[in-house]
Design a protein around this nucleic acid. Structure first.
Length: 153
DNA sequence: GTTGAGCGTT
């Protein structure tokens, strides 16, 4: 819908060419073949541009997420506490505190997924900070499932 | 109910 004049002219030109080609291999009357060819070619080009716009629109820098490693957590801290703590420094998308698979007891560390821009600030603000009589360790997580810190290369 | 360096899970 947002195509400018140049792309519109290009689409029409290609549509006409496609219509001519379509007419050559069709046994129906030339006028109908031409119209059908133009419609099909125009539709194809239209959807190609639509998908292009969709892909580009999906790239939203304000929503890129970064996974943070949080260590030296007090055992009594739950996911809610950690989420509230990090939420003071940015948008927190998810919190996972690792626990023992058998006993279910917390292991004192976990992961926080939050806004990439806020993540750097959260590291500076929360790393080596006192929390529950413990000194927090906050860093960027290792095995990143989300390859979003690629802007640091 | 305990412990204390670490990088996980559908």
């Amino acid at each position: 819908m947002k195509s400018n004049n140049q792309t519109t002219i290009t689409v029409i030109a290609i549509a006409i060419i496609g219509a001519l080609i379509f007419s050559m291999f069709s046994s129906t009357p030339p006028a109908i073949s031409f119209a059908l060819g133009a419609m099909l070619t125009g539709l194809a080009l239209h959807f190609m541009q639509e998908s292009k716009h969709t892909i580009l629109d999906d790239i939203d820098p304000s929503q890129s997420s970064t996974t943070l490693y949080v260590g030296n957590l007090p055992y009594r801290a739950n996911e809610s506490d950690v989420k509230n703590l990090f939420a003071e420094h940015g948008d927190v998308f998810a919190v996972r505190l690792m626990k023992d698979k058998r006993t279910g007891k917390r292991r004192g560390f976990g992961f926080v997924v939050m806004n990439s821009q806020d993540a750097e600030h959260a590291i500076d603000q929360l790393n080596n900070q006192e929390y529950g009589q413990r000194t927090l360790k906050v860093r960027e997580a290792n095995e990143p499932k989300n390859a979003d810190s690629l802007d640091l290369e």
